[in-house]
Design a protein around this nucleic acid. Structure first.
Lengths: 156, 156
DNA sequence: AGGGAAGGGTTTGTTTTTCCAACCCATGGA
DNA sequence: TCCATGGGTTGGAAAAACAAACCCTTCCCT
């Protein structure tokens, strides 16, 4: 049996250990928008400068951002998303859509994303195999690790 | 021009203000899995009990979870996702897939999700209008709020 | 040459959160 | 009766966030 004090092994938890700290995903948002300079990040995110510096180091170490000079003399830097960082963008888009739907029922949206197809982007999470939109009731969880079963309606 | 100290208005930031605190999304994960009892949450998440109690209050207040009794005498409670909570599940799935890809290249995955189509779920974020998978280069951001423009390759 | 200002941070000291362990209370079972 | 279970609350110590000030280099203006 699992020892009485370690949590469920989980990629969500692991991902959040990297990008789940306060401001981290907002840093990634700005980097994806092309606003990767330190003072832009400070202004657009509203985070304390020291915390931001800490987050940037972590995200660079994790391979989610890179720090590149956009000017030598004077040295000036810019943070850009790596491939791994760009692959987190769908998480941001999905979260943004959720916020638009549930937190802004009557206000306008602060940002609209246009897809290259010409329409406004409404992100939908689909099953790669069948293409259908994903809904809770269509899912069955299969824990791969002994001792970490699941009890509810999503159970294996 | 915007005052020198308020951040960009953003649904991602607003959503994270609700579910971005440490453990909140893991609570939702367990609730979605059907493990919504206090001691299950403590064990499966590994969070301090007092923090968990705080998070649960916040998530219930935010309308993401509901607290329902599964037994009177003795009173025993269970937290279940609301509709709004279920609609956050795609965020979790997308994050899990990212973690599986980037944080576990060589280990096995801790959990596999089966879709009702019979295949293993690989979540893909698509454009509702055209059905295509979403990639960074296909997106153009249109800020709706004067003063919050965007500079980079995703610019409007 | 002197005096900013911009950019990218670091330092210092204070306020919040987290964390851990212990405790509490009601019911139920041995 | 005594202990276990479930669902928390409490108190004190440790860690993190915060705000404001500071630092350093290079450019620009006069």
């Amino acid at each position: 049996m699992a020892a009485t004090k370690d949590p469920r092994p989980c990629s969500i938890a692991d991902a959040l250990a990297l990008v789940g700290e306060k401001y981290s995903l907002l840093v990634l948002r700005e980097a994806c928008l092309g606003n990767g300079r330190f003072d832009q990040l400070v202004r657009n995110i509203g985070a304390p400068r020291d915390i931001l510096a800490t987050r940037l180091r972590r995200l660079v170490d994790a391979g989610i951002l890179t720090k590149r000079a956009y000017s030598e003399r004077p040295q000036r830097f810019e943070y850009r998303p790596t491939q791994a960082g760009l692959e987190l963008e769908p998480v941001l888009l999905t979260l943004m859509a959720w916020g638009d739907r549930h937190l802004r029922r009557d206000e306008g949206r602060p940002m609209v994303i246009e897809h290259s197809c010409g329409n406004e982007l409404l992100p939908v999470v689909t099953c790669q195999a069948c293409g259908a939109g994903v809904h809770h009731d269509d899912l069955t969880a299969h824990p791969q690790i002994p001792g970490w079963s699941v009890t509810g309606p999503t159970a294996a």
